[in-house]
Design a protein around this nucleic acid. Structure first.
Lengths: 302, 302
DNA sequence: CCCCTATATTGCATAAATCGCAATACAGTA
DNA sequence: TACTGTATTGCGATTTATGCAATATAGGGG
């Protein structure tokens, strides 16, 4: 019998709800369900009475809960006593865009370094669009990324902040700007066809944009497919076309003066930015602590 | 962390010897070694100091041992409390020869039935030679068999009793008997060639006999290869030849008067008879309890 | 001094446990 | 009635544990 199973049982016994427990425990509902089943199997007793609309403790469950709390507690105590929990040592690998390094990560890393000076951070930067796949393929423990529309259950997402997703227009007076500001972007007659559009090559921003365009029946003239928001902003700033990027990136880019947002009534939904990691990896205390520090740093911000 | 790992640690801490622990725990040495490694890994502390010729507890190990004992104890206590250990229910499957049923198994089964009336015994009888493979292929939980010369480590063997392995000669006055008793079986000149030999088709007895014959450079005249000691005894009793079988089988066969042993100075080694089972299956409490009852029933007999 | 035994560890292949996903079942609700 | 929320289950895939064989090393004779 595994202490993890005991911890699961304690959580479920507290929530009296498998779904909520599964979230707290960073596991799937089925994993929780089976963990309890195994436990009951091993004990030859039902611990939780589930009757299709409620979960409650059985008599044996109440007795066992007392034991389980104590056992979990004593285990953690002995861990601490042996010093394994005093200081975390090891490394955590992190994937993010260059922009995220400044704007999202800086405060997290400062706090994390202060809390766990012996943990090394392996940071890999690149196109934010690759974050999810880097995490899924276990190349990195955690990535800073936008929230995917559909989150695979083995991924965990911790929202940190939101940034408006805008379509950006060059500030300099040029053909692109004149067309872009020459009409009402909300109206069906807006001249999308004459506007060179710089779109993301892949990733969440591309997915959101595609959905948004499809909804409105807009078929943009794609001027370039570019990897990385930073590059999109740069190209827009140079007057090559209009492009999509989170406001955050523009602010951090040093090109805030070279681009301005395209005003629209029904604008794009804001982008939720946060940490993304494999659930399984979150059981690793190092990854878990980075996660926790991030959550605390941005506590209540979103 | 698994309570099983704790139990392993407690055992090793008590023995201060991995090999002996592995026997007590019904696991391979490597499994024990790795269990301890995992534990140390999880705690980030060495628990046992191994310096190539001795094992002793580290400081952390001593502390942890106190915890581990308590944790194992409390776990067993809560199990008992919840009643999972009150009565065993289920079934155990058993393979043995017809003879073993009477001579070896009877007292075990009587004691086992008394101790665990709710456990059903599924008994399969057949040639004792097949016992090992039945167990290896998990067709049966446990078999009564002779001790194999080389025991695969995933098998456990519990010796119960020994029986002399003899070469049997018909009692009735016949050609076979005259030749067999007409010379000194120990002498190199003994007339093996003129004696029809009834040998086991396969199994441990065959292996032992083959080795014994090879050692002495005897090439017997094989009259028949037969499955099952009972059949060998029967054929010898009918005067068809000489044959090998444990004394136990002859005694139980009702043909004890029809056959007599061939006297030899350097006789065959006695056959160790006992229970054989997959180590893994021994962790099943039902199988374990049958094993334990057998051990107690024949306690000290061998 | 060298071979042999005893003991613990490690690479590797295999067996078992666990997990997440998708499908299912069922009760309450809009 | 369709829909939502919740728990379970079959199944494939991944992760973990195990046994075996090989390796390493020390001690004990001959």
């Amino acid at each position: 019998m595994d202490t993890r199973a005991l911890a699961v049982f304690v959580t479920v016994a507290d929530c009296l709800n498998f779904s909520r427990s599964s979230e707290q425990l960073h596991m799937s509902v089925s994993a929780v369900s089976r963990t309890i089943q195994r436990l009951e199997d091993e004990l030859g007793q039902a611990l939780l009475i589930r009757d299709k609309r409620s979960v409650r403790l059985s008599g044996a469950g109440r007795d066992f809960l007392a034991y389980a709390r104590r056992a979990v507690d004593e285990w953690q105590q002995v861990r601490r006593q042996l010093g394994s929990a005093t200081e975390l040592v090891g490394e955590v690998s992190l994937y993010c865009s260059v922009t995220a390094t400044y704007s999202v990560l800086a405060p997290i890393l400062a706090a994390f370094r202060a809390a766990h000076p012996a943990v090394e951070i392996m940071m890999h930067t690149g196109d934010q669009a690759d974050g999810i796949s880097r995490v899924l393929s276990a190349q990195d423990d955690v990535a800073v990324t936008g929230r995917p529309p559909r989150l695979p259950q083995r991924l965990e997402f911790l929202p940190l902040l939101e940034s408006p997703l805008c379509i950006w227009v060059p500030t300099a007076d040029c053909a692109v700007r004149q067309v872009a500001l020459g009409g009402d972007a909300d109206s069906p007659g807006f001249d999308w066809d004459r506007l060179p559009f710089i779109v993301p090559e892949r990733g969440i921003t591309k997915d959101i944009l595609d959905a948004w365009l499809r909804e409105r029946g807009i078929r943009p003239r794609v001027y370039a497919q570019v990897a990385g928001h930073e590059a999109i902003v740069a190209m827009v700033g140079l007057g090559l076309g209009i492009g999509i990027a989170p406001q955050l990136v523009v602010r951090a880019s040093g090109m805030a003066d070279s681009v301005s947002p395209l005003n629209m009534a029904n604008s794009l939904p804001p982008l939720a930015i946060g940490l993304c990691g494999l659930r399984r990896r979150l059981q690793n205390p190092l990854v878990k602590s980075l996660w926790d520090v991030a959550g605390q740093t941005y506590n209540g911000a979103v």
